[in-house]
Design a protein around this nucleic acid. Structure first.
Lengths: 191, 191
DNA sequence: GTCTATATACAGATAGAC
DNA sequence: GTCTATCTGTATATAGAC
């Protein structure tokens, strides 16, 4: 691998594990087996390196999902599965972004618009699938679609955060998903 | 206020807003209007100051709640209200702890056992209230108590985290709570 | 207990040889 | 592109006067 990429890879790993302030360029240089000066030659400043790392990390967040031909309950189940799996697989970077969002200062602006935009798209999909199911008679009309969608998403996020905090074991991921489906999808399903 | 307390107060505010690495003792000294040397005289090292701040911050987490005389659905609603309000009111320190938990390294061990213990107690209370309600006929027996409790708590946490990320407006707190009750408590209520 | 002055280390960043 | 050597600032921490 070329030095530039090696630096990006190492910096990404260290930033996400230790944060921006907690990671020195000396450490990056040491672990990437290059000189500090080379980092500055390639990236100008620590801040620029960081932004480059973030940009790369965000790329896989543009997730598209094909829900054609599925009943609304199945589509909702698929959305839930997909979201949970995506976050689990990218947990290192999701933790990192969440950590940044939690800090009052360091509002890193435009960069995170991408993350929030993808998240907004997902939220809309969930709400729309429930609404459509109610119109087409596959979901009960007794619930308010928007409220129910909000709780589904909150439950997902809550399960995921709990996994972050308690050093998630693989098995529990399956359980978490099953509980959400059992509690929030099955009871409003009609078909 | 005495200098020692002034230092603790200032350090607490700055640590929780900027993190450990992001807060220098020069800044603490400046804002607390004392010399840096005095901080070392009182706390020996930055690490010790930090631990002292954390210990103080954790104190109000030992929350007790009286549920005597309430029906199980009302007790569950009260638990939900109380948890949400507590986290909202202590959001600064909760954000801070969550941020620490998200970091791979810096597992600050024993100190956080207290936070996790209180959290575990709350989880148990929720599960037990649901079980008891099922035994006494105030909650539907069609759901699995443990699973339902897990989803209630996850939804709570998810709503709270979302509030952290999107700079919560007050009004939405009420909405969030109402949605959880409407979606996860009312449907299994019998009385 | 509180201060000023200082020691020591390491951070981000630059100069210039190869 | 990559290095060694170095500059400059600021961090944690100490010494010692009051």
């Amino acid at each position: 691998m070329e030095a530039r990429d090696k630096i990006l890879e190492t910096a990404g790993r260290l930033f996400s594990a230790q944060g921006y302030d907690g990671t020195s360029l000396s450490q990056v240089a040491r672990e990437a087996k290059v000189s500090k000066a080379l980092i500055f030659w390639h990236f100008e400043t620590k801040e620029h390196l960081f932004r480059e790392v973030v940009s790369r990390t965000i790329e896989p967040y543009a997730m598209k999902l094909d829900l054609e031909g599925l009943s609304e309950p199945d589509a909702l189940a698929k959305l839930v599965d997909h979201y949970y799996q995506f976050v689990s697989r990218n947990s290192s970077s999701v933790r990192f972004f969440l950590g940044l969002f939690l800090r009052r200062d360091s509002r890193p602006e435009e960069m995170f618009a991408q993350v929030l935009e993808q998240y907004g798209l997902f939220r809309n999909q969930v709400a729309q699938v429930i609404e459509r199911g109610q119109q087409r008679g596959t979901f009960s009309s007794r619930v308010r679609a928007a409220a129910h969608a909000g709780v589904v998403i909150a439950a997902l996020n809550g399960m995921l955060v709990e996994g972050f905090v308690s050093e998630q074991r693989e098995r529990e991921a399956e359980t978490a998903i099953a509980e959400i489906k059992e509690t929030l999808i099955d009871p409003i399903r009609i078909s």
